[in-house]
Design a protein around this nucleic acid. Structure first.
Length: 477
RNA sequence: GAUUCCGUAGCUCAGCGGUAGAGCAUCUGACUUUUAAUCAGAGGGUCGUGGGUUCAAAUCCCACCGGGAUCACCA
């Protein structure tokens, strides 16, 4: 800094005219032979990642890749050469010069003009090992991104996956909408909400746990195909699969049912997998290879539980009897659990972890699906499915319940569960029921957890690796 | 929330009762077609914080702070 100021150089200037990106140059001059010099002058800008021979060779990295800079007394005035000596690893500079390939085979720009564009006054982490400390990775993501190509690639893929989802939906005439993040009644899912307060209205508000009930109001309003990609907030534990704020895409399609939603799930996920995986549907995740090629099998929850435990719960209608059977299978269920909760608990305990390849788990119990339509052939089930990959729930969808009387009854059942101490039971949203009373078309609804999808498609073992700034405890530095 | 592991220089790590260490980075110099450049030298530390045990603590014990993993809740 002092060296620059002594020379009257602004370490933080305003602009630099970039004419070329590193990756484009590497591609354009791929056939340039070793030792060959072009007549092409280019201007590049980026961060100094390494320097050799007292700054004669500099590795410059921009957002696309790396290019070598060569500074020599033959092409640079003595004062600029002297100034180059004081540039540090981490500094952001702009360079103008002739493109050539060195005899050693490195594409290089012979600097004729060099400008400081943004001084780094702190040293960059060690170049070879990069950042390993997970706390630094998450708290100072910018350092992780500067140092680790793997992290840069993960976030590029995240962006590409979301872009593809948007493209597919838009191409199928879905309209992207925005619904409130601040809800007077948290609805659309079973979860503990974050609570806040609006001063002017002197009103309690909740950060949304799901956009579902508002998106359905838009369906009632006549927008037949809507989707929203945005954050949900749930005041629950943090783990490798859970962050308090996470991103979902929720999609609603009028006149469709859950079968249509299964096909849509497959189109979206398969397309996303190909988009970030060189057109391939097979993706490596940890020890496993997952093949996203559609179509995916469909299995009912009850039939998978039967396969795993030899017990057919469709034949045990009584909740108490089902709970007793669960106990015999070594599965703990809450006191007073209803039939659906028992089946779900056994499924979670005995089946979930085995579902590595994509599979739709269909026909979930009515007891645990208060917003889904009753199954057309079985009154204790709903037309709901959850798609599992790698043992994780990745999508959740149903033929949406559009009968206001049934919806009110389901809400009331939830309220009773809440009074019995189930904190995550859903709240009665009378305004939503009123909206249903104006008539909602038969509708298929689908939600996909974007973070988990990105994890699966980038071989990331923690959700914190796919969220740029994951939630961490505050620390006074 | 419970259990468990971890926290030493800007970064990656070693040291694990007896004078605080290495590599990279930084600074000085040499070299001037290198690419984890090389060579010589220099500076850089409240060993997460606070207590305790001990003649002596980075090292052993306790509490707290921060992080990871597993479990519970959940997507």
């Amino acid at each position: 800094m002092k060296q620059l100021q002594v020379r009257g150089i602004n370490p933080f200037p305003y602009r630099f005219a970039v004419s070329a990106m590193a990756a484009d140059l590497q591609k354009k001059y791929a056939d340039l032979k070793n030792g060959e010099v072009t007549k092409d002058t280019v201007s590049v800008a980026g961060r100094i990642m390494a320097h050799r021979n007292s700054g004669m060779f500099v590795d410059l990295r921009d957002t696309t890749g790396k290019i070598q800079i060569f500074s020599h007394k033959q092409s640079l005035p003595a004062d600029v050469l002297e100034q180059m000596k004081h540039y540090d690893i981490g500094d952001i500079i702009g360079v103008t010069g002739i493109v050539r390939r060195t005899p050693a085979g490195e594409l290089t720009i012979n600097a004729e003009k060099v400008e400081m564009l943004g001084k780094s006054v702190r040293p960059l982490p060690e170049k070879y090992h990069g950042i390993h400390d997970t706390e630094i990775k998450y708290r100072q993501r910018y350092l992780d991104l500067i140092m680790n190509e793997e992290s840069r690639e993960t976030f590029r893929k995240r962006s590409a996956i979301i872009a593809v989802i948007r493209q597919v939906l838009t191409a199928e005439s879905f309209m992207e909408v925005e619904t409130p993040m601040l809800h007077p009644i948290p609805g659309g899912a079973s979860a503990k909400p974050f609570v806040t307060h609006h001063n002017a209205l002197d009103m309690k508000l909740f950060l949304r746990i799901a956009p579902e009930l508002y998106l359905k109001r838009l369906i009632i309003g006549g927008f037949d195909r809507v989707f929203e990609i945005n954050r949900c907030f749930r005041n629950e534990g943090i783990s490798v699969k859970h962050n308090p704020e996470f991103t979902s895409v929720e999609i609603y399609q009028a006149y469709a049912d859950y079968n249509d939603m299964m096909a849509l799930t497959e189109r979206l996920v398969e397309t996303a997998a190909k988009a970030v995986n060189g057109g391939q549907t097979k993706v490596k995740f940890g020890e496993n290879e997952i093949d996203f090629k559609a179509p995916w099998p469909r299995k009912t929850m009850v039939e998978l539980v039967k396969e795993a435990t030899k017990v057919d719960f469709s034949k045990i209608a009584d909740a108490a009897e089902a709970a007793k059977k669960a106990g015999e299978l070594g599965v703990h269920v809450k006191d007073g659990a209803n039939w659906g909760e028992v089946v779900e608990a056994i499924f979670a305990e005995k089946v979930e972890d085995t579902l590595i390849q994509p599979v739709h788990i269909i026909d979930l119990p009515k007891d645990i699906s208060p917003l889904a339509k009753v199954h057309r052939t079985d009154a204790q089930l709903t037309e709901r499915f959850e798609t599992y990959v790698n043992g994780w729930e990745v999508a959740n969808a149903f033929s949406e319940l559009n009968d206001p009387f049934d919806q009110l009854a389901r809400f009331k059942a939830q309220m009773e569960a809440r009074e019995k101490g189930n904190e995550e039971a859903q709240m009665l949203d009378e305004d939503f029921v009123e909206a249903l009373e104006y008539g909602m078309p038969p509708t298929g609804g689908l939600g996909i957890g974007i973070d988990r999808l990105v994890m699966l498609l980038t071989n990331s073992q923690s959700i914190r690796d796919v969220i740029a700034f994951p939630t961490l405890r505050h620390t006074a530095k």
